[in-house]
Amino acid sequence: MSDDPADPLGTTAPTGPEVPAGRTAWQEWHEHRVAIVSAPDGPLSLTGTHWLADHPAGRIPAVPGRWRATDGGVSLTAAPEDGLRLDDEPFTGSAVLAADEGPPAHSRLAAGEVRLVVIRREGEWAVRVFDPAAPARRAFTGIEATPYDPAFALPGRFRPYGGDRTVQVENADGRARGLDLGGELDFAFEGVEHTLQVAVDEVDGSLWAVFGDATGGRTSYRFRFLRPGVPAPDGSVTVDLNRALLPPCAFADHFICPFPPPGNTLPFAVEAGERRLKGALATGI
């Protein structure tokens, strides 16, 4: 599940392999999701996103090493007492790092059990800290989700734009950023037609949507993600709202998830899929 379509952290919250529709398949998907988000390097373990522009001296509080953005990447300088490991080997000296392309478990840098992930957004560099001992991970008791309802598994059709369109949307950190959209997804619910603007993954052609609905901020998190998969050659694809996902920022405040673009707030209640975190963490809805 990602902050945005380009975020490699989307792999921390995958929808799982494609499986036949049905209650049993949904239960397996839900259990897989709980396991992924509660993993030692899952989204619950994110304790900080540190923009290097905010630390011109190169020192990030509680993060070892000295960090500096360059034209070619992020320059990191470390001393032996920093206790850093690069590519599973003790690291001292200097190196220039590119943005991590995989999940936190595959990041090149570690300090003990903590993973340090280099990211880039709209030309700005940051370091993310994933700590298995994060308070949010220790307090996690599960994801509140509505049991599978076939009424929310809907036939849909994807209509590509013929090129990306970029819209500015507010992000969870209060900043507006560009969101690339590749087309529209049409479907009907209770006899009424609806449309969601969707991004298209450049690698596999799968669709990705950020949407709101009438439950947002009430009985569900304020917005959710949906990954319908890869449409057929004729554009047909199942819009299974039973697999609506909580965005990463529902698990940790340090993600920069985009809010729904204009027109992506559905006028009906999507009482399906993941709704919010259970217990004391069910806040910020």
Rank of each mutant, 00 (worst) to 15 (best):
residue 176 A to W: 15
residue 10 G to N: 08
residue 132 P to A: 07
residue 131 D to L: 01
residue 90 P to S: 12
residue 201 D to N: 08
residue 30 H to C: 05
residue 221 Y to G: 02
residue 229 G to I: 07
residue 101 E to D: 15
residue 73 G to C: 08
residue 263 G to Q: 06
residue 97 L to P: 00
residue 250 A to D: 08
residue 130 F to D: 02
residue 65 G to H: 05
residue 41 D to L: 05
residue 13 A to R: 00
residue 243 R to S: 06
residue 52 L to F: 14
residue 71 D to I: 10
residue 145 A to Y: 01
residue 5 P to Y: 08
residue 178 G to W: 05
residue 67 W to S: 09
residue 269 A to I: 15
residue 92 T to N: 06
residue 237 V to C: 10
residue 200 V to I: 02
residue 191 G to Y: 04
residue 235 G to V: 03
residue 273 G to Q: 01
residue 60 I to K: 01
residue 167 V to D: 05
residue 98 A to P: 04
residue 245 L to N: 05
residue 151 A to Q: 12
residue 1 M to W: 10
residue 1 M to I: 07
residue 145 A to W: 00
residue 9 L to W: 11
residue 280 A to H: 13
residue 254 H to C: 09
residue 210 V to F: 13
residue 223 F to G: 01
residue 14 P to V: 08
residue 197 Q to R: 13
residue 85 R to A: 13
residue 219 T to K: 03
residue 223 F to N: 02
residue 65 G to D: 05
residue 198 V to F: 02
residue 65 G to I: 04
residue 62 A to F: 15
residue 102 G to E: 15
residue 199 A to F: 06
residue 165 R to K: 09
residue 125 W to S: 12
residue 258 P to Y: 12
residue 110 A to T: 11
residue 94 S to L: 12
residue 269 A to G: 10
residue 230 V to A: 15
residue 9 L to V: 14
residue 236 S to M: 14
residue 199 A to V: 05
residue 216 G to W: 06
residue 28 E to G: 10
residue 100 D to P: 00
residue 205 G to W: 12
residue 45 S to V: 07
residue 114 V to Q: 01
residue 73 G to I: 10
residue 58 G to K: 03
residue 93 G to D: 07
residue 108 R to W: 07
residue 147 P to A: 12
residue 77 T to H: 11
residue 101 E to T: 15
residue 50 H to I: 08
residue 46 L to S: 02
residue 113 E to F: 07
residue 134 A to Q: 07
residue 146 T to W: 08
residue 271 E to P: 01
residue 178 G to P: 01
residue 89 E to G: 03
residue 224 R to K: 05
residue 281 L to D: 12
residue 124 E to C: 12
residue 50 H to W: 10
residue 5 P to T: 07
residue 143 I to G: 00
residue 90 P to F: 13
residue 136 A to F: 11
residue 217 G to M: 10
residue 174 G to V: 11
residue 183 G to Y: 01
residue 97 L to H: 09
residue 8 P to I: 04
residue 227 R to H: 13
residue 231 P to I: 09
residue 74 V to P: 00
residue 237 V to E: 02
residue 65 G to W: 03
residue 269 A to Y: 13
residue 41 D to I: 05
residue 257 C to R: 01
residue 209 A to N: 06
residue 284 G to W: 11
residue 8 P to A: 09
residue 118 V to G: 02
residue 201 D to Q: 06
residue 164 D to V: 04
residue 182 G to E: 03
residue 280 A to I: 13
residue 240 D to C: 06
residue 14 P to Y: 07
residue 25 A to D: 06
residue 218 R to G: 14
residue 210 V to M: 10
residue 197 Q to N: 13
residue 18 E to Q: 11
residue 256 I to N: 14
residue 169 V to C: 05
residue 91 F to S: 01
residue 272 A to E: 03
residue 147 P to S: 13
residue 57 A to M: 12
residue 171 N to I: 09
residue 125 W to M: 10
residue 197 Q to F: 10
residue 29 W to P: 00
residue 54 D to N: 14
residue 13 A to H: 01
residue 104 P to Y: 06
residue 87 D to V: 10
residue 165 R to C: 07
residue 35 A to I: 12
residue 43 P to R: 03
residue 240 D to V: 03
residue 269 A to C: 11
residue 284 G to E: 15
